[in-house]
Design a binder for these strands. Sequence first.
RNA 1: GCGGGCGUGGUGGAACUGGUAGACACGCAGGAUUUAGGUUCCUGUGGCUUACGCCGUGGGGGUUCAAGUCCCUCCGCCCGCACCA
Length: 867
Amino acid sequence: MSNERYNSRTSEPHWQKVWAENRTFAASEDTSKPKYYVLEMFPYPSGRIHMGHVRNYTMGDVLARYKRAMGFNVLHPMGWDAFGMPAENAAMERNVHPKSWTYENIETMRRQLKSMGLSLDWEREFATCDSEYYRHEQEMFIDFLEAGLAERKTSVVNWDPVDQTVLANEQVIDGRGWRSGAAVEQRELAQWFLKITDYSQELLDALDTLDGWPEKVRLMQRNWIGRSEGLRFRFELEDEDGNLLDDKLTVYTTRHDTIFGATFCALSPDHPMVRGMADQDGAISAFRAECAALGTSEEAIERAEKKGIPLGLYARHPYRQGVRVPVYAANFVLMGYGEGAIFGCPGHDQRDFDFARKYGLDVIPVVAPADADPATFEIADEAYLDKDGAGVVMINSDFLNGMTVDDAKQEIADRMEAAGTGERRVNFRLRDWGVSRQRYWGCPIPVIHCADCGAVPVPKQDLPVTLPEDVSFTEPGNPLNRHPHWKHVACPSCGKPAIRETDTFDTFIDSAWYFARFCSPRAAAPVDADAVAYWMPVDQYIGGIEHAILHLLYARFYTRAMHKTGHGTIDEPFASLFTQGMVIHETYRAEDGEWVEPANAEQVEGAWREIGTGRPLTAGPAEKMSKSKRNVVDPEQILEQYGADTARWFMLSDTPPERDIEWTEGGVEGAWRFTQRIWRLVNDTTQLELTGDTAPSEMSGEVVAVRRATHQTLHTVSQDIEALRFNRAIARIYELSNVLNTAVQKAKGDDAMAWAVREGVVVMVQIFAPMMPHLAEECWKLLGYESLIAQTPWPQADAALLTTDSVTIAVQVNGKRRDEISLPKGTAKEEIEASVLQLDNVLRAVGDKSIRKVIVVPDRIVNVVAG
RNA sequence: GCGGGCGUGGUGGAACUGGUAGACACGCAGGAUUUAGGUUCCUGUGGCUUACGCCGUGGGGGUUCAAGUCCCUCCGCCCGCACCA
């Protein structure tokens, strides 16, 4: 008998080697089996894996192993989202090349992931920075260009004058570059855009078909796309003296019902009309500069006062003869939405109200509660908002008076369209996707700029355009731009000297199609049609909620763009999406604000202190693991100390997968103890003497109970894994192991019990195999099997054991539980009632009251109503 | 401001269509084994009460024979978006 502990350190590498040598998880198209594509969001090779990876990949692996056992042909690949800024930062800080830094990180992280025992098809691995990958991105971009899905236009970017680089909004902190600290300028640059807005409506509509997605994510995307129905119309303009001007002012509104409440118009500081006037007028020019300096951070917007500058223009009210309203440039009007110009109705819009109060403009109420007196209804301290229009009517609005808000909108839209001064219009918040980045470590944009021919795509036979490796990061700016010869090439069209595009693609492009590439990672074309047709869409995609909008929306768009250009036939890449929670850990702080590692905190007489120094500490909440808060736990250390199975088991236990899980030492210890308990149980089981393989003919109630527990657990665990309720599955497995632990003590010399215990243990090992695959293989071998459990079909529950012959029925008197009674399943109502009314506890509770009614829910509960 | 989610023991969390609240785990307490243990095993563990029993799913109200679950209302926490006309 083996009393030795289960040793994960020798067992885990052993089985990992066996799986690799057997190519156990290599996938290939097999039309005789249903396919299942499970994918976790691939990692950025930042250096080492973190606990979030452990959680994410464990969940996906459980599903992959389960589906494989269920008879599916499973694709479960892994790769690297390998382009991006951290590599350039490392290059600048540590004088390493982004390429070697990235590939070295990949080496490390691949080794770490392999030590987790994930059932991945490593033969399909690639990194997005492999030219073999990004060459296809370049090819598809050229196809997109031809299909009109890509275009070049100018746009305003955050420019860091010291680092000479474009900054993303989140890299601008209080108007300064995060690295250089220099004041950020707004610059106009010509950039490439992918025309995601061509698909605004489609991307919105298709959300309704994505039943396997969390409602939350669908909602976030809906809001991001931001569809609104409104009216675009034109005001006639006049100057100070009332002379009609040639130019008209086009505005967009969703509240055209409030047109009689209009008391001013406002243009974005970036509106072409304002720009034109700024050239002549220093005050307007200064106002524009002031607005540009204000920044776009949320906080800045929060604090910013509504401000404007009169332009000396007036808009003629379309329906009030002789009335004109002043036109301003105003800081709260965005150029990027609608027409970049609005009419202001202070009575019914808070921003307009604030603006009107500041500049002494009229406030005319035009919508009022139905029961208010139109003559006296006034707007006092804030705008009167009533967006759904219920219970309100139009007032002070001439021909609209008495109408509902909706009817008033219809009326105005009809009149404007009839008069040719406006038209109904659907607007989206979604903007085209700017994909140019002035950076080195990304996919080169395959375009050559020629003075004569313009932007010319690189001919496909010249692809890939690879990154030059002899670059330096000692100076600011894009190394591609200052490389001695890389960008100087001949124009593919006319042959004259031309300049290669030195921008690279946004790395979101890399991740917008990698899932398709996994289907045929070595294909000469971006994708192999048959492979993609077989594997796509991804059946279950798993990743963090932080990608709810950008990555997932880009991937949805890109899949459509690939479809349009002949690189696929589907539109929606992810049939089901699961967003898992973060891994959090407790935090501790000293009085001076310094964070202290949780491992160095101890509690002495109720107070927290730092071990060693004795400094008093304050225990903070559990928060996302981060270096700055010093609460990071390194997975590699955990994997070494406890083994992969323990780490995996812990990650799946106790907390529902969509919620944040708190890392606790105690929890890991508990998981580790369980692996040892299992090992002992399986060892004890192998010591039992079995008379045969077939079920014994005679079985006591106790034995049947063990078998019931086995088959019921099998049944519910299958359902729980299917629904990704791993924490529940694990609770059931604990229950079964407790039953079997008790039963194995009684099984010596009891043939039937021994048989039932062995059956239970075999099933138990099979159902925890997706979670703790190494331990499962080891147990499987110990139980005498020669095959791999990873290739063993999922067991089938015996339906006869899922139902019971007798049931325990709770007995209530007036809704309070007084007793319970065990009866054969399916006992008739009358019979149940008769039995219940004889129970002492019932009689006592009823006392001298009379029984009014007896509610009987067969096989469940009885409620005696007395009073 | 707009949109969404969540409040259950000391802790993480169970509870299918309303039907025995607290499964399972952590922690804690007591006991046993061991040369020692941070090992293993057993027992107990929502609160109040000597007991019978009563009270308990954020607070209040309602529907129902029966409410963690459904409805109304209030409070608290979390997340997303945000000058989008």
